[in-house]
Design a protein around this nucleic acid. Structure first.
Length: 659
DNA sequence: CTTTTCACAGTCGCGCGGATGGGA
DNA sequence: TCCCATCCGCGCGACTGTGAAAAG
C-alpha cells in the first residue's frame, strides 16, 4: 500500500519481479533463464528439495562468472577506481548513504515488495543502488543443505531468482568467478540510503518489511569497515544481526535464516592503516554459509512478535566445523562478506511451501558487510568491540575513567550519597546526548530477555515505550526508525493485535517490577557508552555498577525506545549525524569516540590521518583518532534542548522504573 | 613478513547445592 | 518437626580481546 509510496519507485507485483530476476541474468552473461526453468520444474517434496538444493546452487554457480559492467559504469564510487578503503573513502560513500537518513523513515526498512520495474532506476529505488544488487549464489551444493535443520530448503530457483533480480537491477561492475554465494556491492548508488534493498523473491501475499534493529551500532562499525573474527571453534558476530520483521502472514509458517555471501570479488589486506584489495577472492571456499534461526519454522505472528536476533550465530574458518549440532558459518579470512536475511514460507511441518513461487524473500543491509579476520586489524574496530561488546568488558581497563562523567557534569544527587539512586536518577544531562547516540543501540541490545537467547523482548515500538508529553515526537521517532510512516498504522495495528495482551504487560512487567537492577540494564544498557552508563559509572564504583547494570539483561538487543530513535537524531539539526550519534559516553569519557560531523569531512579528506591511527592499539581516553570531538556534541546542544531531551530520557527511564 | 593458532586473564550468566525463613 | 519456597554463594562454562608463538 503506502509502503510502496514510501519507496522511491513504482510498485510491481512480486511474481513479475521474480521473473525479471531470473531472466535478467541474460544481461549479465549468466546462464539465462536456467534458474527459472529449474525452479518451475522443481519437485516440492522435502527430499527433493534438499536434493535440489545442490542443483540449485549449481545453477547459481553459472551465474557467478558474470560481469557487472553496469555497476562500475553507473557507480561513480571512489572504490571503483580505487579499491582502497580508507576512512575517507568510507565517509564518502557513507555520506551518500547516510544522507538518506534525512530523507525519511522509509529508508530504514526493507520491503520485499520493491518493484522490479524500477530496474531502470535502481538508485532511486534502492538507496544503495548497485551496492547490494549483485548477488551470487553458491557454487557448491552444500551451501544450504549443510545447515538447514528443518528440512526446509530455500528453493534454489527462488533464491537464484532473487539473486538474479538484484543483479539485473543493480548490475554492479564486478567480475567474478565461481563461488558459494557472492554479493558484490560497491556502494555506488547515487540515491544512497541507509537500509539496503530487499531482494524480493516474490510473494504477493505477504510482503515483509525488515528492520535492522541495531543499525546504529552496525553503522558505527561499518564506518571503519567492520571486521569479524573467525576462529576454528567459531566466533560470535558482534554486532550481531537483529531484525524486526513485519508484513508477514500471521498464520503462515516461515523459516528465517541468515546467509553470508561474498560481498566482493577481492581478497583484502590491511595495509597502511587501510583495507586494500589484494588479489582475487577465493570463492571456492567450501562450507556452510547459512544459519537458520533456531526458532524456525514458526508463524509469521511469531516472527513479528519480537525482535529476531542471531546472537548465537558463529563464524568460523573451519570447513569441517558444521558436523556437530552447532550452526556455524564458514568464512574465509580477509574476505569481505555480506549477511543476508532470508524469509521462506514453509508448511506447518517445516517443509518449504512450494505451492506458490512467492515464498522467498531476501533482505540485505549493506551496513552489515564485514571483513572476516583471524585477528583484528583496525584498532578502531577493536576499540569499538571492546566498548560495545559486553563480553569484552574485561578489556576496558580504563573503565572507570572511560565512562565517568566529569564531576561538574553530575546532577543531584551526589553519587556518594546514594549509589543506588544514581542508577535510578536519569540525570537529564547524561540521559540526553548520549541517549541520542547510543542509547538507541543500547536499548536494542537489551531487548533479549534471556542471555544469549536468540529471542528478544517484545518490541516496544511505541506501544510499550513510555511516552510523556513528548510522546508524539517520540512516537514519531520510533515509527520512523522501526516502522515507516506509512507503515505506522499497519504496524501499530499489528502490534496492537498481536502484542497487546500477550506482551505489553508481561514484557514490561519484569522491568517495572525490578526496581533497580532491571531498570538499570534497560536504561543504562548493556553497552557502557550509553548516557546512563557513563552517568552511573561516574557515580558509583565500577564493580557495583557493572553488576547492577548487567544483571538480568544481557547484551541482547532491545527495540529502541521510540523517544530516542533516529528521528530525534535528525531533529538535532543534523547536529548529530551518523557519526555523532555514536559518541555519547565517549564525549564525557574520552574513550573511543566517533568523529563529529564537522570533523568528519576533514577526516574524509585526510584519510591519511585515519590511517595513522588505524593500526594503533587501544587508545587511552583522549587519544583516539576521533577524540577531538565528541564533547562538542554535548556542548553543542543548548540547555533548552538539553533539558528537553533529558526529560524524554527521564520519562523513558521512569517508565521502567516505576511499575 | 603476514597470517593463524593457542593459552591466557577477565567478565558474565547459569546451574547447583546449602542456608534460611515461613507455613502446615 | 517437616515441607516448601526463596535467597545466596560458589563453580563451571561461555565469551571476549590480548599477545606470544607457530605456521605459511
Amino acid at each position: 500500500m503506502q509502503l510502496e509510496s514510501l519507496l522511491p519507485g513504482p510498485s510491481v507485483n512480486l511474481p513479475k519481479t521474480f521473473y525479471n530476476l531470473s531472466t535478467s541474468s541474460e544481461s549479465t552473461n549468466n546462464s539465462p533463464g536456467s534458474t527459472h526453468i529449474d525452479f518451475q520444474e522443481m519437485d516440492r517434496t522435502e527430499p527433493e528439495q534438499k536434493k535440489f538444493l545442490s542443483g540449485g546452487t549449481a545453477l547459481l554457480d553459472e551465474a557467478e562468472s558474470e560481469t557487472f559492467p553496469g555497476n562500475k559504469a553507473s557507480a561513480p564510487d571512489a572504490r571503483k577506481s580505487s579499491p582502497v578503503i580508507s576512512s575517507g573513502d568510507d565517509d564518502l560513500s557513507s555520506a551518500r548513504r547516510y544522507n538518506i537518513d534525512e530523507l525519511g523513515t522509509d529508508r530504514y526498512f526493507i520491503s520485499s515488495s520493491q518493484p522490479s520495474s524500477d530496474v531502470t532506476n535502481p538508485c532511486s529505488l534502492f538507496p544503495y543502488g548497485g551496492q547490494s544488487g549483485s548477488v551470487y549464489s553458491g557454487s557448491n551444493g552444500s551451501r544450504y543443505s549443510s545447515s538447514l535443520h528443518y528440512g526446509s530448503v530455500l528453493p534454489p530457483a527462488g533464491f537464484s531468482s532473487a539473486v538474479c533480480a538484484s543483479r539485473s537491477q543493480f548490475a554492479s561492475g564486478y567480475q567474478f568467478g565461481q563461488g558459494p554465494g557472492c554479493l558484490y556491492p560497491s556502494y555506488p548508488g547515487p540515491g544512497s540510503g541507509l537500509s539496503s534493498m530487499p531482494i524480493p523473491g516474490s510473494g504477493s501475499a505477504a510482503r515483509a518489511q525488515v528492520y535492522l534493529c541495531n543499525r546504529p551500532l552496525w553503522l558505527k562499525f561499518h564506518r571503519h569497515q567492520t571486521e569479524m573474527i573467525i576462529t576454528k571453534q567459531g566466533r560470535r558476530m558482534f554486532p550481531f544481526l537483529s531484525f524486526n520483521i513485519t508484513g508477514l502472514n500471521l498464520t503462515a509458517h516461515y523459516n528465517v535464516f541468515v546467509e553470508v555471501v561474498l560481498a566482493d570479488p577481492n581478497h583484502w589486506r590491511f595495509q597502511g592503516g587501510k583495507w586494500v584489495t589484494c588479489g582475487k577472492a577465493d570463492n571456492n571456499m567450501q562450507g556452510n554459509k547459512v544459519y537458520v534461526h533456531p526458532e524456525s519454522p514458526n508463524t509469521g505472528a511469531h516472527w513479528m512478535r519480537q525482535e529476531i536476533s542471531f546472537g548465537k550465530l558463529k563464524l568460523t574458518n573451519n570447513k569441517g566445523a558444521n558436523n556437530n549440532n552447532t550452526q556455524m558459518i564458514v568464512l574465509q579470512s580477509l574476505h569481505k562478506y555480506q549477511p543476508r536475511l532470508h524469509i521462506v514460507e514453509v508448511t506447518e511441518d517445516g517443509v518449504e511451501d512450494m505451492s506458490s513461487e512467492a515464498k522467498t524473500q531476501t533482505f540485505t543491509f549493506p551496513e552489515n558487510q564485514f571483513i572476516a579476520v583471524t585477528a583484528y586489524q583496525n584498532t578502531d574496530i577493536t576499540q569499538l568491540k571492546i566498548d560495545h561488546n559486553p563480553f569484552a568488558k574485561g578489556f576496558r581497563d580504563n573503565y572507570d575513567s572511560m565512562y565517568t562523567a566529569p564531576e561538574s557534569d553530575r546532577l543531584t544527587p551526589s553519587p556518594t550519597d546514594s549509589p543506588r539512586s544514581h542508577q535510578i536518577v536519569p540525570g537529564a544531562r547524561y540521559a540526553m546526548q548520549p541517549f541520542f547516540q547510543d542509547q538507541f543501540v543500547n536499548n536494542l541490545q537489551q531487548n533479549h530477555r534471556f542471555y544469549g537467547g536468540e529471542r528478544a523482548v517484545p518490541q516496544t515500538n511505541g506501544l510499550l515505550s513510555p511516552q510523556s508529553e513528548d510522546s508524539a515526537a517520540s512516537s514519531a521517532a520510533a515509527q520512523r526508525w522501526f516502522v515507516g510512516p506509512v507503515q505506522q498504522s499497519g504496524a501499530s495495528t499489528k502490534l496492537d493485535l498481536s502484542y497487546d495482551g500477550e506482551y505489553s504487560a508481561s514484557s514490561l512487567l519484569p522491568y517495572g517490577i525490578k526496581p533497580l537492577p532491571l531498570q538499570s540494564p534497560h536504561a543504562l544498557g548493556y553497552y557502557p557508552d550509553s548516557a546512563f552508563a557513563s552517568m552511573a559509572a561516574g557515580w558509583s564504583s565500577r564493580s557495583s555498577y557493572q553488576r547492577k547494570m548487567t544483571t538480568g539483561l544481557p547484551w541482547s538487543p532491545r527495540p529502541s525506545p521510540p523517544a530516542y530513535s533516529d528521528d530525534l537524531l535528525s531533529s538535532k539539526d543534523k547536529l548529530l549525524d551518523e557519526s555523532s550519534t555514536v559518541a555519547p559516553a565517549a564525549a564525557s569519557s574520552g574513550s573511543w569516540m566517533e568523529t563529529p560531523p564537522a570533523l568528519k569531512a576533514v577526516e574524509s579528506l585526510e584519510s591519511g590521518g585515519y590511517a595513522m591511527v588505524c593500526k594503533r592499539r587501544r587508545i587511552s581516553p583522549g587519544g583516539s583518532s576521533t577524540d577531538a570531538s565528541p564533547t562538542i556534541k554535548c556542548e553543542d546542544l543548548s540547555s533548552e534542548e538539553y533539558n528537553k531531551e533529558s526529560h524524554k530520557a527521564m520519562g523513558y527511564y521512569a517508565f521502567y522504573t516505576s511499575p
